[in-house]
Design a protein around this nucleic acid. Structure first.
Lengths: 335, 335
DNA sequence: TTGTATGCGTTATCAA
DNA sequence: TTGATAACGCATACAA
């Protein structure tokens, strides 16, 4: 069963293929009557204009790519949701890729996308993306005129539109919140201390303490390296009333800490309060529910999509934009 | 900055464009030396063959679409992950859409996809998909030679490859598991009693009871309609030792039930055991952790992708396949 | 081994 | 208002 093309419609209606084309594209050159006839035939034959021929002729494709680390991460799922909605509204299709925190996979994806199947790219990089490789590959997109918008995990020295979370204030505000709840011995647990985001959140924590005239105690800063378990750290830290609150900037570690504290017999938040990071509902269902920093993933996706569309459709030479999306604290029962 | 095309490469190298084309496609007609030269020039110029021209010529596109209800649902996220991996391996790009449980949105997506931007379609329908509209739209894909694979939420009277969960045995096995833990007064809570899946799980429950010689008590079957709260139902049901276990086939309802029971002073699982449904980690972190039916979303995605690729690349006329993916019980502390 | 010519299905320009 | 023709960029049958 061959696909019906414009010539089939032309033959069926008796009009030339250029008339058919114009009629189907609702050109005002064509009379109402002719349009009606041609449209009805096209429908009857289930004619669909060839995607490639049309795009080849018009030389633009309404596809954009998105590359994120992991779709099972609730934050990224929200970003995709927000982005997809926005793109769909503007007629763009969203092609999804996952780098699984691997720079080499990321590179493979990027190389593949150079084939022109997308006219723009949304990307949040794999951890430790500071490889020259990736940067070089990304630069190729510039010469292909394919704009890139980075969000969340961005490359500092790559020039493009960027959407960032307000990581600094997320922890700054967390400290404020804890202090207002009477806490002053606040630990900071970071399994991502070697990332830019981790450092910004750390800075917010340190400055938050400073703004409350609390002396920074480096023993209360717990950077975790991959594979570290927090068990001994937390046990040590929590003994003798050395701390009365914990800010943890990664979801699973937060849950482990909560369960550890409860097992050790501490009351949360009375003895030790906890603040965690996630967009997801998990913290809502544990006991006690955990106060958490909401990163507004859906909004990040929407905003990134808007920037990308603008960049695709308008001037590529405008100055690059860096948007900072504020986080907000969802207050629950752990603080 | 115009994109460089094959003629630019041809001029740069001094070879004709057909020689260039052949060289870049690694044709054995072309000498090693020529290939080398042409390849190096192509690289230097950052030449990328025009996506549309190439596809127009070859008339096949390595894009597939996936439509799911909601990406924030962990099960569907897993399906996407599994599918994406499989598609990527075979060189296909995955274009993602979400129907948000709306048949009209679903229809819009399908209509749009008729433009030939994908050569295959993976779909899990919005609830209540039994509209003639959707079926008619889906049928159009047949005449476009675009194969469809349905998974999970399928349309019974539409002929295509399908991947289904073993819903019947999921609840059948759950009953067995509860009985082996000494429970016999097992309630069944279903917020999706009006769906095929809901009915199959119900059947599994009923037959599970039968196989254990437990008389079915219709008062223990709680179908919930949208908006119903389970509070009064569960309170009534749990009083006077009327039940000693609950199977609930929706994640959020399950969590609510757990929390309700604990508030009412019941011990879980001693007084009342609970089994829920989800692929996600939420049940792992509540106290007590909840035994749950794992639907193996990633495998469902992978399998669906495989079927679709086969259908795209091979004979379209083979008989349609219906795969049943077994579920498994993750035993935790609520049973 | 390389080059010439043609066609894929559209849309756009120009002529009728 | 309609139609003939060229062009988009590539791949391939065929000629050299």
């Amino acid at each position: 069963m061959k696909k019906v093309n414009i010539i089939d419609v032309s033959k069926a209606t008796g009009f030339s293929k250029s008339t058919v084309s114009k009629a189907l594209n609702n050109s005002k050159e064509i009379s109402k009557k002719t349009k009606k006839k041609i449209n009805s035939f096209a429908k009857k034959l289930n004619y669909q204009p060839n995607f490639f021929a049309r795009n080849l002729r018009k030389n633009n494709i309404k596809n954009v790519g998105i590359i994120i680390p992991d779709i099972l991460n609730y934050y990224f799922a929200k970003v995709i949701k927000g982005a997809q909605k926005e793109f769909f509204k503007s007629g763009y299709d969203l092609v999804c890729f996952f780098n699984e925190e691997s720079t080499s996979k990321e590179k493979k994806i990027l190389e593949k996308l150079k084939n022109g199947s997308v006219s723009g790219l949304l990307i949040s990089l794999a951890r430790n993306p500071y490889s020259e490789n990736i940067k070089k590959t990304l630069k190729d997109f510039k010469s292909l005129n394919t704009p890139i918008v980075m969000f969340d995990r961005v490359l500092d020295d790559f020039k493009c539109d960027k959407v960032l979370m307000d990581d600094f204030n997320s922890t700054f505000d967390s400290v404020k919140h804890l202090v207002s709840a009477g806490k002053r011995k606040i630990a900071f647990v970071s399994p991502i201390h070697d990332t830019i985001i981790g450092r910004k959140r750390y800075d917010g924590y340190v400055d938050g303490l400073k703004s409350e005239n609390i002396k920074f105690d480096k023993d209360l800063y717990i950077p975790l390296t991959k594979g570290d378990t927090i068990e001994s750290e937390i046990t040590k830290l929590s003994s003798n009333g050395r701390i009365d609150a914990i800010i943890c900037i990664e979801q699973h570690t937060t849950i482990s800490i909560l369960s550890l504290l409860l097992n050790l017999g501490y009351k949360v938040p009375k003895d030790i309060a906890i603040i965690g990071f996630t967009d997801g509902p998990i913290f809502k269902y544990v006991k006690p529910s955990i106060t958490s920093v909401d990163q507004h993933g859906e909004y990040v996706g929407k905003l990134s999509a808007k920037l990308l569309i603008k960049r695709i459709e308008n001037d590529q030479n405008e100055d690059f934009v860096h948007e900072i999306v504020p986080t907000s604290l969802i207050k629950r029962n752990s603080t």
